[in-house]
Design a protein around this nucleic acid. Structure first.
Lengths: 247, 247
DNA sequence: CGGTAATTTGACGCTAGTCAATTCATGTGG
DNA sequence: CCACATGAATTGACTAGCGTCAAATTACCG
């Protein structure tokens, strides 16, 4: 994260979705010719960008949305007083910029957490497709609504759970999302810093550190730097439900 | 709130929007004939419902959205373990059910906090209008996105603010929303219980009570049961920014 | 006017934040 | 390729804010 740089707009990609392994998560089932041609006009695949690359920054004019194709990123909200909060971690197939739809400027900043590639969809092009294709419209809406419910989950987690429970819930959340995109649900690469996790969960980074250490000692997970492996999923589940380790 | 009852579907309303004082907040500027007729087919105004009436409950099949026309309501999320969290307070012109768009069942429960009336929009009718009218589509999307950003604000409030600051922020939030619908920004009717406020802010109800008492003593507000009057707006603002009372 | 629920107020304890010091990765340049 | 520098992560000690429990008071509705 030493050299933040803006995303280079190297538009060397061509109609990218037709061959994409993850297409089913981004587009409707029926990938007919009409849709395919709309898409290839609209979507621009980018070459991989280095860790620490900004896709956009809060306050900039809103020009495009993105879908993450590989790697990972985080979304950061900067409050009036300068405080920064990590609002979400982004994995492949996630819609990036949902909170900025219909807005003149971006409502948050997004930065890659590792070498990552994205598919860019200019705002205008998205609007055109959504106006034409009903199933794309439903898919977009359901992605947006999904992010409402993700925010709500995050909020309820803050309201009701203690530090350990939040941490366990976070691990299970990441696991479920990895599984959803066809990755192994027990092998989690924590590409973000402890500080980022802490901000996401409303904790101090020391508390995250302590929780991970304790989880390791209790045989719930095994942690080696950024690589976390789930060992006792049921144990994590119990913790996330707010039951103390022993019950 | 003693006798919860489901909303009576007395469809005695007719094309309600054409005469509605708050139309500008629910519909696009140009209210042409085509749109007007779509609307009158779709929107059904209900007679006022008593306090404690459920509009819908989490898990029920999703059939319709609502716009609040008068009164107020709260949205409640029930977690797997039975815990209930107040997710939002609803005021006139608010879209009710945004989190349930494109879902088979309602994602939360909504109950009136006082005698209130609503405009019902069947899911199918909304979809039809959104498919036809571009400006309605943009308005709907911006309402949905607005609720993402409201959730985010609520979450950042939990993460960064102490009890007093949350409370002050809540009062200012309600004030701004009242002003937005043309009501006096200093006269706030707290139709919800202290317990509801506490749940919304992630606090204990005792903490809410104490904060209100202290605010009254400090001359920031004047409280008489459910009627709250803002006395020192700047003082509240400073508190909400996290500055202690004296700075 | 009485009964019930909501609210207020007080006392106490625990959780997690803060401060501080140490160890450990990471990647950079000689 | 290794030594070093920088920032991240870990660990420990201390403290404060807020939740919990309990009791008293007040509002509200029949």
């Amino acid at each position: 994260m030493s050299k933040p740089a803006h995303l280079q707009l190297v538009a060397n990609g061509t109609s990218p979705c037709s061959e994409c392994r993850l297409r089913a998560k981004c587009l409707p089932d029926h990938f007919d010719d009409a849709l395919a041609s709309s898409i290839s006009d609209a979507v621009r695949a980018h070459p991989p960008a280095a860790r620490g690359t900004w896709l956009f920054r809060q306050g900039e004019p809103m020009t495009a949305y993105y879908f993450l194709r590989s790697g990972s990123a985080k979304s950061v909200l900067t409050a009036d007083d300068g405080h920064e909060s990590v609002m979400s971690f982004l994995l492949p197939t996630d819609l990036i910029g949902a909170a900025s739809l219909e807005q003149a400027t971006y409502q948050d900043s997004v930065i890659t957490l590792e070498r990552s590639s994205v598919c860019e969809v200019p705002a205008r092009a998205l609007d055109a497709i959504v106006g034409k294709d009903e199933s794309v419209r439903h898919l977009l809406l359901s992605k947006v609504v999904h992010s409402i419910n993700a925010e709500r989950h995050a909020r309820v987690r803050l309201e009701h759970l203690g530090a350990d429970a939040r941490m366990a819930d976070f691990i299970l959340e990441m696991s479920a999302r990895l599984q959803d995109i066809g990755r192994h649900p027990d092998e989690i690469l924590l590409a973000m810093s402890r500080y980022d996790i802490a901000s996401y969960l409303g904790l101090a980074s020391e508390t995250v550190s302590r929780a991970l250490t304790r989880f390791g000692e209790a045989g719930l997970v095994s942690v080696q730097q950024k690589q976390l492996t789930i060992v006792d999923r049921d144990g994590l589940l119990r913790l996330a439900r707010g039951e103390s380790a022993g019950d």
